[in-house]
Design a binder for these strands. Structure first.
Lengths: 178, 178
DNA sequence: TTAAACATTCAAAACGTTTTGAAAGAAGGG
DNA sequence: CCCTTCTTTCAAAACGTTTTGAATGTTTAA
């Protein structure tokens, strides 16, 4: 096999491992995804294990995680009893899956915790000493700032997750915030 | 001290710890930032250590990391030889610091690696067998998709990092991608 | 200059996560 | 139904990260 092709494959796989870490996954998940993405044919667990030089056990567990995230799916090869996988090739679909699952939940939780704090502070107000009341006001201000941030994050997430078109560079030349 | 105030403080600090993890920092950094953000007065290293029940050594190192990220700054208290810190109170400034540093670099690297791959594939083309050439075409297509993603990410980052206004919920009711 | 008060460093310990491989579990073919 | 082939599980080991605290460095006041 030509060395250039091998190099390109490896650096892409490594890069996707890096990206996976960045998104809070472990890098094996990213490398598995990358390996599948850079393969014209679906690959079996054994092939994945030997290409990445990791144990079969690890491949098995991480592939199931990839499936749960909608980043890969099983591919049935007739006449074969092996399990084959192929990558979800639409990167934007993958991004939407991830953002729409984990990140969205994070933001929701943060907003609800902050909301509860505001309620608690407001309903406790009458029981507070003058000094405590001042601190409560300070807290409310800071919480307000945090809420502003999470609100913007929420809108941004919904924008990406909700957009059904495949974004691409030619189509997207501006992102406007107003 | 009123229990409500303590609860609100603690859940905010815990939440910022969570957020820090999410952004790939360790959670002590987030909790330190949170503790400072929820304090009307600058705090000394000792106060931080005792509030978070962690060692002074850890506070010292993590505070320096916070400083490097522009998330906190030293506050000189005259007549005191202790070092005091206060949080950068503008959340958007903090976000811009982080995105403009680490994330931006990540995207740049990814784009340059992908660009190199394209070049290598193109210049190797003549040396390839017919079969290899087909694989090279496949790689080029996949790399193109990845480039599209990173290009959009880059534009989005520049939009946030470059915006000098403090974004807030009342001002930002739409994020448009087109 | 010295002593006191603090901050910083860093090696070792604690802790958490990932990986492995052996054992158990399925599924398919004959 | 049993054997073969493959997958899944999970406890233990390897590995990586974070935390601690004692030792060291720094600053200030007198």
């Amino acid at each position: 096999m030509d060395q250039t092709l091998v190099n390109v494959n490896e650096s892409t796989v490594a890069g996707l491992g890096r990206l996976a870490r960045f998104f809070g996954f472990n890098d094996v998940m990213g490398r598995l995804y990358g390996t599948l993405l850079m393969s014209p044919e679906p690959l079996s667990l054994d092939e994945l294990a030997s290409q990445l030089k990791i144990s079969k056990g690890s491949v098995s567990m991480n592939m199931r995680a990839l499936e749960r995230w909608g980043m890969a799916k099983e591919y049935w090869m007739r006449g074969e009893r092996k399990k084959y996988y192929e990558a979800e090739p639409d990167i934007w679909q993958v991004i939407r899956n991830v953002l729409g699952g984990r990140e969205r939940r994070e933001v929701q939780i943060a907003l609800s915790v902050l909301g509860e704090s505001v309620e608690q502070l407001q309903s406790a107000e009458t029981t507070l000493s003058a000094e405590e009341r001042e601190l409560a006001q300070f807290y409310l201000q800071r919480i307000d700032d945090l809420q502003a941030f999470f609100n913007v994050a929420q809108i941004a997430l919904e924008t990406v997750v909700g957009s059904d078109a495949t974004l691409d560079f030619d189509a997207v030349t501006t992102i406007e915030i107003r």
